[in-house]
Nucleic acid binder design. Structure first.
Length: 648
DNA sequence: TGGACAGCGCATGAGC
DNA sequence: GCTCATGCGG
DNA sequence: GTCCA
């Protein structure tokens, strides 16, 4: 049984599993229509599988610990999948209920370190450290084999019994499953035991199924480290924008060709600042934080902006363009991971979770390597909590608390929350009602009472989650624009969001529409016509929300469309606004926090805010404090001028 | 130690 | 039919 | 969660 053969086996298995999985999916769908009780369904499915002769539940009742290896995510994932499909539960960290540790390495000491233990004797009584090949053989044999030939450590024989009480000694890093049981979490294993070849799989299956709603019955592999789209800063086209008035008057699309010198407005400067590569979408918050943190109270600062504060923001400064990958990328990813995981979890404080994301941004833009939490806590935005409870934990190399909470439940809920229209509340509700995966929802949509909008989100789940390449944004823009021009050539229509910021990809496509009132024109009623035309052309395919008043000067439409009949479905928003709000709104909705943070801060400092208040436009919620009429800034440059910002 | 951390439009459903 | 509260998104 | 009054 050489390694090679093992790999071949694995390939065979993989195919095998794929076929098997399809079978299960069908079974599920069929069963759901008739069976409402989850437990009953579980049994039915099990029976069905045994009937298929695939022996998928060989590992029922077994709990495997696989310590993740750096750089071997995909291997880990496939192992996880395979064990899960065989009915076993997989955990990343050892706990008091594990029955096996999968380990192909050489030394017990190394493994102990990987597991975060001082010694392997901390493992629960009877835990078997076994090589992956054993799993493969079990799969092939369709039963739990003797572990003898595949033990990780022949000599030390960790299949020997240990004292389980000793294992849970005080200070042990191992999670005690029994406390979870007390807390009402259901865990599949209730009793330590020594698995052996003599285990009757049907017997253990029964035991397993008797447990109510097993928490981790469908373990999922860890997500690979999220790769932000902006791995490399966009080698952005110099897409400074021409004076917006000219552009729109001339009916020209956002050029992203070359700017005419001296024609850029204030935002252009910001954008060019963004394009020096340092600032990326999704890390805006930290920029905002840092920016605000560093502003104020520096009277000696020599700035060139009319408003000194503006100089203290990244975007208002000169940029040297040299900004490479942060030395703290690892920490940044960890915090992103936390954010992704926690943002859907009920009971997690909104601001706490948001802070994780901000921490990620801070990590990424901290130029010096953070080697200990204490250093990090000096940074604004990183407090003692993050430093000690998280950063130190991450840096220790041990998985830390995150891994304890990185459960299949959290993952399922996070996935649900990615459905358009499903937020934290609904995501948790769906889980409560028994859904464990997107496919579960799809298999029985009625059962979960999804709203129409959510059904669209579910149907188009993958498409809507995908980023939209810049090219495609442009294509959609051209379509929308041409229809708008056909309605009224004097309309101003602009694409907003990350596209306008020069990003290579966007999450959705936003349009801002208005019309100059100078000559008595108005865009009233355009929204309805535009949407109808686009629908007729097949550009708009789904509607998610409609304006209260289609003819109002301020109206918002949200929906889904696509550039071509074969293309992916994309989120599309269309917003009509009164003409005098154009300038501020364009900035506001271009939405770059790097731009909006300073501008909001600056304006706020002057007793203004930039909210697009419904009636009062962008002039600071109509507060009487207003000393500047930002509303009149229908050109961006006007806006920037009005808050004392230098623009070229 | 306790409040702010943005504020708002739309969909939905409960209550009236 | 209405208002109000809640969830959600940008 | 952090920051600030």
């Amino acid at each position: 049984m050489g390694r090679l053969k093992g790999k071949k086996d694995l390939q065979t298995l993989t195919k095998h599993f794929e076929a098997f999985e399809k079978g299960v999916a069908k079974d599920n769908a069929a069963e759901r229509s008739g069976v409402t009780d989850r437990k009953g369904k579980g049994k039915a499915r099990s029976a069905g599988q045994v009937g298929l002769g695939l022996g998928s539940k060989v590992f029922d009742g077994l709990r495997f610990c696989i310590s993740p290896e750096i750089g071997a995510v995909s291997k880990h994932k496939s192992w996880w999948d395979i064990i899960a499909k065989m009915g076993g539960t997989v955990v990343i960290r050892p706990d008091t209920a594990i029955t096996h540790v999968i380990y192909d390495g050489r030394s017990a000491a190394l493994l102990a370190r990987e597991l975060g233990l001082d010694t392997l004797s901390e493992l629960p009584e009877g835990t078997v450290c076994v090589k992956w090949d054993w799993v493969v053989k079990c799969k092939m044999a369709n039963k739990v084999l003797e572990t003898g030939p595949w033990l990780s450590f022949q000599k030390t024989a960790f299949n020997r019994a240990f004292s389980s009480n000793a294992a849970i000694r005080e200070g042990s890093r191992m999670r005690d499953i029994t406390t979870d049981l007390l807390k009402g979490r259901s865990i599949s294993i209730t009793k330590r035991r020594e698995p052996s070849a003599s285990d009757s799989e049907t017997e253990s299956s029964k035991k397993q199924r008797a447990a109510p709603s097993v928490l981790e019955r469908q373990p999922q592999p860890p997500k690979p480290v999220p790769q932000r789209s902006s791995e490399a800063a966009p080698t952005a086209p110099a897409d400074a924008y021409r004076d917006n008035a000219t552009t729109h008057g001339a009916g020209r699309g956002p050029g992203w060709e070359n700017p005419l010198a001296n024609k850029g407005d204030g935002l252009d400067e910001l954008i060019s600042g963004l394009q020096d590569g340092t600032i990326r979408e999704d890390e805006d918050e930290s920029v905002k934080e840092n920016g605000i943190a560093n502003e104020v109270a520096d009277d000696e600062y020599e700035g060139t902006n009319p408003c000194l504060v503006a100089d203290k923001f990244k975007c208002g400064q000169n940029h040297d363009g040299a900004d490479d990958k942060s030395p703290n990328e690892y920490l940044a990813r960890k915090f992103e991971e936390m954010y992704d995981l926690y943002q859907g979890v009920a009971g997690k404080d909104f601001f706490s979770v948001r802070n994780y994301r901000m921490a990620a941004g801070i990590m990424r833009r901290t130029p010096w390597p953070i080697t200990k939490g204490a250093d990090a806590s000096k940074i604004k935005g990183i407090g003692a909590n993050l430093a000690e409870r998280w950063i130190d934990e991450f840096l220790s190399g041990r998985p830390g608390r995150l891994f304890y909470e990185d459960t299949s439940q959290a993952r399922a809920i996070a996935a649900f929350k990615d459905i358009y229209g499903v937020g934290k509340s609904q995501a948790n509700e769906l889980y409560k009602r028994g859904a464990r995966s997107i496919d579960d929802l799809r298999a029985d949509p009625e059962r979960y009472g999804l709203t129409s909008g959510q059904q669209v989100g579910l149907e188009l789940y993958d498409d809507l989650r995908a980023r939209i390449p810049r090219e495609e944004c442009k294509a959609i823009y051209d379509l929308v624009r041409s229809e708008a021009m056909a309605i009224d050539p004097k309309l101003w229509i602009e694409i907003m969001g990350s596209y306008r910021r020069g990003q290579e990809a966007s999450g959705d496509v936003d349009f801002l529409i208005t019309e100059d009132t100078e000559d008595g024109g108005s865009h009233a009623g355009v929204m309805g016509k535009l949407v109808n035309r686009l629908r007729d052309r097949g550009v708009i395919t789904h509607e998610l929300s409609q304006p209260h008043d289609w003819r109002a000067l301020e109206a918002k439409w949200m929906g889904v469309g696509r550039a071509t009949p074969e293309g992916k479905y994309r989120r599309i928003d269309i917003l009509c606004i009164p003409f005098d709000q154009w300038g501020a709104a364009l900035i506001y909705f271009t939405g770059n926090d790097v731009a909006s943070a300073p501008s909001q801060t600056i304006t706020a400092g002057r007793g203004l805010s930039m909210g697009k208040g419904s009636g009062s436009g962008c002039s600071g919620s109509g507060r009487p404090k207003d000393r500047l009429d930002v509303r009149s800034a229908s050109l961006e440059s006007g806006f920037w001028a009005s808050i004392g910002y230098r623009f070229v």
